[in-house]
């Protein structure tokens, strides 16, 4: 097989809406979806927005949904599709669209701030650390994460439930919690936080996150389930519960700390909202100003209404979103 023509169907638009556009683009043997998108950009649609960096599966920038399946465009080979098959590329659905294939993934950066940082014992300075390879390997698996956020995108807890976002950190940050909880030298008690504040209990272990992980991290089996077990051991063991109620057991000897990034305003900056044009009522203006102030870190630019799940989507979400999404995907509401 040498050069041939590929039919591409690419979602184009922004937060206010958009639709699919059909293209035909020449492709070569051995190419990946991102090559086709790049050629499209270089020859037919120079303003086609796509986020990418390394094109080697190492940076996790080019996440999208290809024929409904969440994946990295740079690691999805064209040879994995039927010859003549039209390939449909859409942005990740769980995050607000910025433009075309680019989404606003701020959610993840805000969640990252809430996980307390690694805290070694104060007398154990760098260079003096002694850890066995077998002990660091458990956490090393989770540190392979390239932050493509495909697991976050696929997780049905937030994929179809915008309302869960404030209370749910998502698989990427469950493995971060697990990584630190299993770090041989970490001193922070993370279990109450991951359960009470970060929504570990929302996860009903459908393993969709594991299915889409390009690094093949066993998110559910190796991170989420062990974390759930650790939480259960303390939170739901009747003896421990009773003992802590009557003061027999100290709940923990590990230290309790707040989020890594503190509770102040977010350091993640965004373009300043455009200067307001004409707002009719003075009352509304005050309200709008207040809203802007509150949301300056994350200016509203998404249409939540557009994300209401259709019945098809909801049913599908119960299986892996990956498999489901190929059934029907209508983005035109966006």
């Amino acid at each position: 097989m040498s050069a041939r023509d590929l039919n591409l169907r690419v979602w184009r638009g922004d937060g206010s809406g958009g639709d699919f556009v059909n293209y035909t683009v020449p492709v070569e043997e051995g190419e990946v979806v991102l090559d086709a998108i790049h050629r499209l950009q270089a020859t037919q649609a120079s303003d086609l927005a796509v986020r990418w960096n390394c094109k080697a599966g190492k940076c996790g920038s080019c996440s999208a949904e290809i024929n409904g399946k969440p994946g990295l465009m740079c690691m999805t080979r064209l040879s994995s599709f039927e010859p003549g098959e039209t390939i449909t590329v859409t942005p990740m659905r769980t995050f607000p669209v910025v433009r075309d294939l680019v989404t606003d993934v701020t959610f993840n950066f805000e969640k990252a701030r809430q996980v307390p940082a690694f805290a070694p014992p104060s007398d154990n300075k760098g260079g003096k650390f002694r850890m066995a390879q077998v002990d660091v390997e458990r956490s090393q698996e989770f540190r392979k994460c390239i932050e493509c956020f495909l697991c976050q995108n696929t997780c049905h807890v937030i994929r179809d439930h915008e309302e869960n976002k404030p209370a749910f950190a998502g698989p990427r940050f469950f493995i971060r919690h697990a990584e630190l909880d299993m770090h041989p030298l970490d001193t922070v008690d993370r279990q109450p936080m991951v359960q009470e504040d970060h929504g570990l209990g929302f996860c009903n272990i459908t393993k969709c996150c594991t299915d889409v992980c390009p690094e093949h991290i066993k998110i559910t089996d190796n991170a989420i389930i062990p974390m759930k077990e650790r939480v259960v051991d303390r939170k739901y063991d009747p003896l421990v519960f009773l003992g802590s109620k009557i003061g027999l057991f100290k709940s923990t000897t590990r230290q309790q700390v707040g989020p890594a990034g503190g509770l102040g305003p977010s350091p993640i900056k965004h373009p300043a909202p455009p200067t307001p044009v004409a707002v009719p009522e003075p009352v509304k203006r005050a309200a709008a100003a207040k809203r802007t102030a509150a949301k300056q870190a994350a200016p509203a630019k998404k249409t939540t209404a557009a994300k209401k799940a259709t019945p098809v989507r909801k049913a599908a979400a119960k299986k892996t979103a990956a498999k489901a999404a190929s059934a029907t995907r209508r983005r035109s509401t966006r």
Partner: peptide, 21 residues
């Protein structure tokens, strides 16, 4: 060397020798 050890204090998990270094 100091800069590498500092990374370890901040949570980096390097591969280890038999002695755990």
């Amino acid at each position: 060397p100091e800069r590498v050890w500092e990374l370890e204090e901040w949570g980096a998990l390097f591969d280890r020798t038999k002695e755990g270094k």
